[in-house]
């Protein structure tokens, strides 16, 4: 950083950063887009060749493994499972009884502590 930044220079440098910065951000994400649109299917295809050795044309392998299976179907299935699991209850005994508990003295239930509880 040997150059001295003047006010006018600052603005022009600002414009340079603005343009190049935007271009780089776009280029970066465009690269990602292109890769996931075209690069990934090829990679998956190569992977498939390596693991299974089956001969197939690139065209035949589509990134869309199963176009019928959309996110909506997945959502419907998961809702169904969720509802099913939600309905399950463990069988509980319906007869409720209240047992008389025998009172034993304990400092925890002693009257003196109980009387001062509100004050503490």
């Amino acid at each position: 950083m040997t150059h001295i930044l003047l006010y006018t220079d600052t603005l022009s440098e600002g414009y340079i950063i603005l343009i190049t910065g935007l271009l780089i951000v776009f280029a970066g994400l465009l690269l990602l887009t292109v890769f996931f649109k075209y690069g990934l299917p090829i990679m998956l295809y190569i992977y498939k060749i390596i693991t299974k050795g089956r001969d197939k044309k690139v065209k035949e392998i589509s990134r869309k493994v199963n176009t019928d299976f959309t996110g909506e179907i997945a959502a419907a299935i998961s809702v169904a499972i969720h509802l099913y699991l939600d309905e399950q209850h463990d069988d509980e005994n319906a007869i409720l009884t209240i047992k008389q508990a025998r009172k034993l003295y304990s400092p925890w239930s002693s009257k003196i502590y109980g009387a001062y509880r509100n004050r503490l």
Binding site: V25, F26, G28, L29, L30, L32, T33, V34, F35, F36, K37
Partner: peptide
């Protein structure tokens, strides 16, 4: 992937 451009 094209929606990535909106982020840019």
């Amino acid at each position: 992937p094209k929606l990535m451009l909106l982020g840019a």
